[in-house]
Amino acid sequence: MIEILETPPLNTMQDLGRVGYRQHGIGRGGVMDRLALAAGNALLGNEEGEAGLEFQLFPVRLRFTKETAFAVTGADCEARLSGRRLPAWWATRAEAGDELVLSSPRKEMRAYLTIAGGFDVPKVLGSRSTHARDSFGGYHGRALLAGDVLQSRAPEPFLFRDGAGVGATPAAEAVAAATCEDLAEGETVVRAIPAAEYQTFDEASRNALCRTPWKVTARSNRQGYALSGTPLRRNALLEMRSHAIVPGVIQVPPSGQPLIQLAEANSAGGYPKIGVVIEADLWRIGQLPPGGTLRFVWCSLAEARAAEEAAEAYLARLRRLAGYCRSAIA
């Protein structure tokens, strides 16, 4: 069992999201950084999409009320287990009474707590993700609060071969990002594929999307990020009909300042879309805090597939190697 001792608002339980309910207007939801969640699960021997706690505001304090193998992945929040500092992207065992403290990350944005066996909450429409807007899924359909007690499902018992645990190389180091011309230190590059209304933007705007940096504004959250930069203009201002949208879509409202819809995006929208960020790069946006700088590069479907394979290869190798570092208890 885990008792939440302290948490700011907006920290929720998430998995890889709900798939198959769009005919009811229910979009995918789920984690902002799927690689961090999957890496934590790989270290613990869980299914890749087992739900974890997504922390995007800090500090967070929690207490293990029984012995629990857990992992903290994603943004480096200088995790301390009963005072002892843990490396980032680390899995280890807590004893009953141990306290885990997560502090504000210096860079990056979201950290994930996964536990061996997973959290014991029911799946709602096939997923344990919290749907905050409609108040269902996850932990009672809401963000975590101090005093909440989360139960685990019984894991297959195991020991870490190294008593201190085992870790993963953070995805940002292990999985190569795309690059672009005149890239400045600290900028995040993501790949995108042109979308239906790409051709309706004037030539300068089509070029500007990939040639100029975009600032992540404070109006950025799990639903989407509002960007600021050189305004993008269309050749003709035509209204759009409401249509289904996917996480990663780069919409351009009349202001010309793009919005990227993310994990908790509405399932439908009505702004023209210049492009869509590929799935394999969405986690990089999820780790970019307000004030950060985003760069776009166009890519082909083949490149998107290669990016997906690179992420999958990282996770597959991690799962395999981490398996050698755990031993089952008969």
Partner: peptide, 24 residues
């Protein structure tokens, strides 16, 4: 307000990133 809405002469299929395809 601009009341004009794009009306396509022919159906169009476009990619929505690498996770979806959109038919207009």
């Amino acid at each position: 307000v601009n009341r004009d809405v794009t009306v396509l002469q022919e159906a169009r299929v476009s990619f929505c990133g690498n996770t979806a395809v959109l038919l207009d």
